[in-house]
């Protein structure tokens, strides 16, 4: 039978899992360091891909949308990564598989933000399509694809951010189920 506490724990698994993880000082210190690194990486990479240069000077030309996304990913992405490491290092309290298959979600989230800039503003798509198409066919296919990637870049950013959050939730939920199974029996989990 599920208790009120166990129901709450399953409904909001992130809170319990993060509380437990951040009780450890190492993770509390690692979070801002990893978050700042990820945010800086995106702040450099996103305008760099747009401008076609990976010099550090490109960070001066980051747009407000790109900056917002970089900060969001800096805040979100370290959480599932650190949680996976925490579960892996504390096998007594959780499944050994916490994140074996789901660890792909943070990777997808990390790459999701780069996709629009990588495909829209570089010669990748036109050059690839030019192998198969030419003339009016190329003109009919290539610009619409690049236009969608360019105009709806915000949607790619939002999807990447949601994926990062989803990854956190799934990892935490898995951990909570395991903990409840151990503490209150199979019915609670």
């Amino acid at each position: 039978m599920k208790t009120v506490a166990s129901t709450e724990r399953l409904r909001f698994p992130e809170g319990a899992a993060l509380r437990e993880m951040f009780a450890s000082r190492a993770y509390l210190l690692a979070y801002p360091v990893l978050g700042a690194t990820i945010a800086l990486l995106y702040t450099w990479l996103l305008p760099g891909l747009e401008l076609g240069s990976l010099g550090f000077w490109v960070a001066r030309y980051v747009t407000p949308l790109q900056f917002g996304f970089s900060v969001t990913m800096g805040l979100l992405l370290p959480l599932p990564l650190l949680l996976s490491v925490y579960f892996w290092r504390h096998p007594s309290c959780c499944v050994s598989s916490a994140g074996s298959k789901r660890s792909r979600i943070p990777l997808a989230a990390a790459l999701g933000g780069i996709v629009p800039n990588l495909l829209c503003c570089t010669p990748f798509i036109p050059t690839l399509l030019a192998v198969f198409l030419s003339g009016t066919a190329l003109l009919a296919v290539s610009p619409p694809i690049q236009h969608v990637l360019n105009v709806y870049a915000w949607a790619f950013y939002a999807t990447a951010a949601v994926s990062a959050w989803l990854s956190l939730r799934l990892t935490a939920k898995r951990y909570s189920r395991e903990s409840l199974w151990r503490e209150e029996g199979p019915a609670a989990a």
Partner: peptide
């Protein structure tokens, strides 16, 4: 001809193309 979004040519004073490429911003 490839419908690139950002393509450039450098044309010398004599009217000859001396360089070209994608992504002038960088």
């Amino acid at each position: 001809p490839n419908s690139e979004l950002d393509y450039y040519y450098v044309v010398s004073a004599g009217g000859v193309v001396v360089a070209q490429g994608s992504g002038l911003g960088g």
